[in-house]
Design a protein around this nucleic acid. Structure first.
Lengths: 185, 185
DNA sequence: CTTAGCATGTAACTAGTTACATGATTGG
DNA sequence: CCAATCATGTAACTAGTTACATGCTAAG
């Protein structure tokens, strides 16, 4: 499917970036829904260059640090737009190791299950706070981010989606924990 | 990490199964949160047997069809319980190709974006209905499934979680579509 | 008799992670 | 000067998918 290919093309369609910059984007803005390590990104940049979807300029940082600044080509934009238009069926599986453990709850005793759920609830709650913080930072630096015509609209949408996703998870965890705790010994 | 290892051990901790049965479980009950193809399952069963976590009996179906029915060993149960007790940090990334496209909404025009979201909304709505159907079937065949002490509790939990997950997605899609449609040309 | 489903495997490939490896720059 | 961060790459491995390959059984 080469999703990483399109992730990189999408980023480069917004502005020119180095491999290092792309790695950073996967760590913060995009990271909730897609990511890749630099060890996967650099070979992919090489490949996309060979295929003519992107190009790079070498720039000197300081005295002699060479960095490759990549730009998308017209062929790259065409490939990106084709991918953006395709309507894939939604995947049957979204892997979630915690939910896999949940499926096996009958192999745990009540205390083990309650501990596992309590820990997950704590972690997910922390994540909601962290994401709300990010959203706050975004709307402060660009108050128009929630408009379709803002360059930050995509960023705004993924943040709101990530927050709703985690809030929904938290609600379900609370509800399920109650159910576990309230069941007789 | 070997998550597939634990997925298989968890299933075999409930009852004995063939490789084919395991494949089916990934297609229906478990499939919302973990899955694997038979081409990955059969080699893993071989490996787990070599490692002493599982064993098998050969049974004859009909005249000469040999099938391997696997059981978990004590070593397998020990490994399973250790994994069930471990509290991993939640993964930063949950990959979602649709949300990756959403991040790049500024590379689409308004109509393209609306089409993409409308299609996704339709698909997710269908999925909610399908999951509700499954939950209904489960609670009909085992009315006690919502109790911690039912063998089906894990199944019940993953179904309710999957339904909530998809309903949350649908709500966000509706909200975002409204935002897209109502923005001036 | 025929079709859907049961049943098991391997080969080739693609995707992704962890570890190895190196060196420059910037700010305190 | 020192630490954090910028910057780029490769090697070895693990995980997962698609395609190839075969044969039996049960129900209509």
């Amino acid at each position: 499917m080469r999703v990483l290919k399109y992730a990189i093309l999408g980023l480069l369609d917004q502005c020119e970036l180095t491999g290092y910059d792309i790695t950073k984007h996967f760590k913060d803005s995009l990271g909730q829904f897609w990511s890749a390590k630099h060890s996967q990104i650099y070979p992919e940049l090489k490949r996309l260059t060979d295929e003519g979807f992107i190009e790079f300029d070498v720039r000197i940082q300081g005295k002699k640090l060479e960095k490759k600044v990549y730009q998308i080509t017209e062929a790259g934009q065409a490939a990106l737009h084709q991918w953006l238009r395709t309507k894939d069926p939604i995947p049957e599986t979204t892997k979630d190791e915690f939910m896999l453990k949940t499926f096996f709850i009958s192999s745990m005793d009540k205390k083990e299950a309650a501990d596992l759920f309590t820990h997950q609830l704590l972690e997910r709650t922390k994540k909601v706070d962290m994401l709300k913080q990010k959203l706050l930072a975004l709307t402060e630096e660009d108050p128009g981010a929630e408009s379709l015509y803002s360059a930050q609209f995509g960023h705004y949408l993924v943040l709101t989606r990530a927050i709703e996703r985690e809030k929904g998870y938290v609600r379900w965890l609370e509800q399920t924990l109650k159910r576990i705790d309230s069941s007789a010994l």
